[in-house]
């Protein structure tokens, strides 16, 4: 089987939940006490696609301002960038735009982008309308997803009342992803890496235990959404 290596860099402001998302996705360990990233953290995970085995390398960068200038080191060789903001924080969305500008002028090769609005569980405090984010993503030709690292975590533990009915499904436009259904078939990173590896047509194998690690439960609209597959 073909082995593909893909590098993803996760960018975004301090505290938007980058590490929480990555840790959720990699599923190596669950921690409610994730502390601010220092420099950048390096994660790896293997994913088996239908026709290839993908070795995914994830650079989870620190959002703290003092590490800002280190970012080129991480995105320079990346195939894809995951741009994360916090839907309750307008400034974090603005910061994403800053990152996009920087990537457009500095990235060496073609870079697949994806926009993620995190903390969907805090919809009551939403400061970034989903439509704005979706429109911006569409203009970039990037998929936009809203998710919650926290709620996913809760659902993983098997019960979470009272956080259903989250808004922000309205991701319309070119980059729209159908919630739940699409998310299960194309968890964002898998989607990204598929594109990155030039295997855009590849279906992420959701069944048969071929996905070795829990897939990212993106945009799960209800708390009782079954947890994505795992080894």
């Amino acid at each position: 089987m073909k082995v593909i290596e893909a590098k993803i860099v996760v960018l975004g402001s301090q505290g938007v939940g980058k590490t929480s998302l990555v840790v959720r996705y990699i599923g190596k360990m669950f921690s409610r006490h994730i502390s601010p990233t220092i420099g950048a953290s390096f994660f790896t995970c293997n994913i088996n696609l239908a026709e290839a085995r993908v070795k995914l390398q994830v650079w989870d960068t620190a959002g703290q301002e003092r590490f800002r200038s280190m970012a080129p080191m991480y995105y320079r060789n990346a195939n894809a960038a995951l741009l994360v903001f916090d839907i309750t924080c307008r400034a974090s969305f603005a910061a994403v735009k800053g990152w996009v500008k920087e990537l457009q002028s500095n990235a060496a090769g073609p870079l697949v982008l994806a926009l993620v609005g995190n903390k969907a569980d805090l919809a009551a405090a939403r400061a970034v309308p989903a439509t704005d984010a979706a429109r911006y993503a569409a203009a970039l030709g990037a998929p936009y997803t809203e998710t919650s690292a926290l709620r996913s975590a809760a659902s993983r533990r098997g019960g979470c009342g009272g956080c259903g009915g989250v808004g922000g499904r309205g991701a319309r436009g070119a980059a729209r992803l159908e919630p739940a259904h699409a998310a299960r078939r194309h968890p964002a990173p898998a989607l990204l890496l598929a594109a990155a590896a030039g295997a855009a047509g590849a279906e992420v194998s959701a069944g048969g235990g071929r996905v070795e690690l829990p897939a990212w439960s993106l945009h799960t609209p209800r708390a009782d959404t079954p947890r994505p597959l795992c080894c």
Binding site: S31, H33, I34, I38, S41, F67
Partner: peptide
Amino acid sequence: NLVRSSESFKTAESWTP
């Protein structure tokens, strides 16, 4: 002090200036 203060080093390998 850096190591004691940075729980995040426990999560994954880190690369930091």
